[in-house]
């Protein structure tokens, strides 16, 4: 690890100001320190936000407000989340380990970096780590890489489970900028696709601090998170599906899908949800939804299996959701 200066932020504005001047925010540290040890990132200054008053889970007019420092374990254990947003509790519990969830924070989880092996290996080319150097994963080992949304410059996936569930729940994020202004943004608008700038992963500006995530009032529907991975626990998703679905008089009255492991960002598509609304659930409908999701899917060699795996996982989740949603 390279030497760095350590600051403890006294207020959110203080943290934003430091970050705007180039300091790197540290929360749980479970992703950042890992990357610093490999010298994938080498900040000159860390600004520690863990003493800020950014915890707490509370009901507000907008919905359930989750402070950026709420740990993944506290969020998964929260009774309101377990009752009203089970897809989120399930996604959190499917991620990492008990120890890591005790440290991992809501803000840090959203902004964790890819697990692409070459991103971690500083002896190989990687456009995300070292813009312009190339991409060792294209034509290399790419079992965990993207089949949707990738570019000729980067095929990495976003590793978060939590963000996938939050996307299906149509979460908003609250951000304090360097000037002290606060804004909210749909989580869907946070992430950008790699294009020719895979080092740029979100719309955040230097100095932007995530202060909270807001979940709209509960959907009251059947909620499922299914994660497929190489071992039963403590492994990242190869494919994951978050599903919020409701039936009324035998027809789909509400549908929201989001996917992990498939793309450089937590993936969703409004068209997928729209094509199910008002329809009677059927094998044919679910096949059409899968066709639509995967119409532009492209395998890279070792990850070709993700295309049929995503199809089968999605269809299985939709069947389970319909079964559970029957009165």
């Amino acid at each position: 690890m390279r030497p760095f200066d350590y600051l403890r932020a006294a207020s959110p504005d203080d943290a934003s100001a430091a970050a705007a001047q180039g300091a790197t925010i540290i929360a749980g540290g479970t992703n950042l320190l890992d990357l610093m040890k490999h010298e994938v990132v080498a900040p000159d200054t860390l600004v520690d936000i863990t003493r800020l008053d950014l915890g707490g889970i509370e009901q507000t007019d907008q919905g359930l407000r989750i402070g950026a420092l709420v740990t993944n374990s506290d969020l998964a254990a929260d009774r309101t989340v377990r009752r009203d947003y089970p897809v989120l509790a399930r996604a959190l519990l499917a991620g990492a380990s008990g120890q890591l969830r005790n440290k991992a924070t809501t803000g840090g989880n959203l902004l964790q970096r890819t697990r692409c092996y070459y991103f971690y290996d500083t002896s190989t080319p990687c456009n995300k780590r070292d813009p312009g150097s190339g991409c060792a994963a294209i034509g290399g080992f790419n079992r965990i890489h993207a089949i949707l949304g990738a570019s000729n410059h980067c095929i990495a996936t976003h590793p978060s489970d939590m963000a996938v569930a939050m996307l299906a729940l149509r979460a908003l994020i609250e951000i304090t900028g360097a000037g002290g202004d606060t804004r909210t943004l749909p989580l869907d608008d946070l992430y950008v696709l790699p294009g020719d700038r895979p080092d740029r992963e979100t719309v955040l500006n230097p100095g932007d601090l995530i202060t909270a995530v807001i979940l709209p009032p509960p959907a009251g529907a059947t909620q499922i998170y299914r994660k497929v991975r190489d071992r039963a626990s403590y492994a990242f998703a190869l494919v994951s599906v978050a599903c919020v679905l409701d039936l009324q008089d035998g027809k789909i009255a509400q549908a929201s899908l989001a996917f992990g492991g498939l793309a450089p960002r937590p993936w969703s598509a409004k068209a997928l949800n729209d094509m199910m609304l008002g329809e009677t659930p059927s094998d044919a409908l679910f096949e059409r939804v899968a066709d639509h999701l995967l119409a532009k899917a492209k395998g890279q060699g070792s990850n070709d299996f993700k295309i049929p795996l995503a199809r089968r996982t999605l269809i299985a989740v939709l069947h389970e959701a319909v079964e559970r949603a029957q009165p």
Binding site: Y6, I26, G29, T30, D34, T50, Q99, L100, N102, K103
Partner: peptide
């Protein structure tokens, strides 16, 4: 953070001591 050998309790909660800074 991948093996758990370094697990300790901080204020009663289990964490991986290899992935946190002492100064924090």
């Amino acid at each position: 953070g991948q093996c758990g050998a370094c697990t300790v309790l901080i204020n009663g909660r289990r964490i991986n001591s290899c992935l946190t800074l002492a100064c924090m």
